[in-house]
Amino acid sequence: MNLSTNRLYLGYDGRLIVEDLNLSIAPGQISVLIGPNGCGKSTILRSLARLLPPRQGSVLLDGKMIQHLPTKVVAKKLAILPQMPQAPEGLSVEQLVWFGRYPYQSALGGRTQSDREAVEWALAQTGMTVFASRALETLSGGQRQRAWIAMALAQQTPILLLDEPTTYLDLSHQLEVLHLLVRLNREEGKTVVMVLHDLNQASRFAHQLIVVNGGRVVAQGLPEEVLNEQILREVFGLKAHFLQDPETGRPYCIPYALARKEPLIVDERVEEKA
């Protein structure tokens, strides 16, 4: 399952945020979008999931324009977990996960055996089986995030997109979520595309890093190829030391000062609206 963009232009209201983007997502791998606030990474992710229509150009799913595919068909091929998703009050975990079967159900919503199996599988994969009947509001942040991931898993899509899945989680819950995604990638062959804020987590868990700045992809490749002093300085405006992660051999950066050599293109409002 291939996901790519072809000369993609994206924006909100009168403002262009992403221009002339040609991006190809490696199938079966974990790709992580990084970049400063307002660089357009969330915007790109949303457009990959057809949540934001292009101004120009196209997002291609297996060579077909994603905007022209029936949206239910797309929902069986890619699932996206938006930032801070909201559920109607009083839903239990299991009820939430059942909504992941929506693209498979007929207008009258009959439940089939394969629906049931997919829901059980999604709960088991995320370790949420024991919490199935708990109300979403009663869960911790990490458990709630896993419940949402379970809903996306119930869609049984080869591609999983996540917009900052670790934001607002404490460190152990962040790792819990990231390890879950690694396992889904390794054992179930899922293509994972996500936005992360923490560069070292990105370096550690990504097969492919996609560095976005000012609405453009300025580097794409293995973390060891992409993360270096120059990128940190030019994209993030930081001076940093680099070490090697003793466990993975990946680069590990320790920023120690701001490097305001060239002005950064930072527009917080755009990112927040995205």
């Binding site: 699932a79 109607p88 693209p103």
Partner: peptide
Amino acid sequence: LILHQKLDVLSFGDSTAKSLGMR
């Protein structure tokens, strides 16, 4: 009453409803 499931999906908000395949 027939549309109850679609109403449920709509009440998740735009992003989630659309990603679940709702028109």
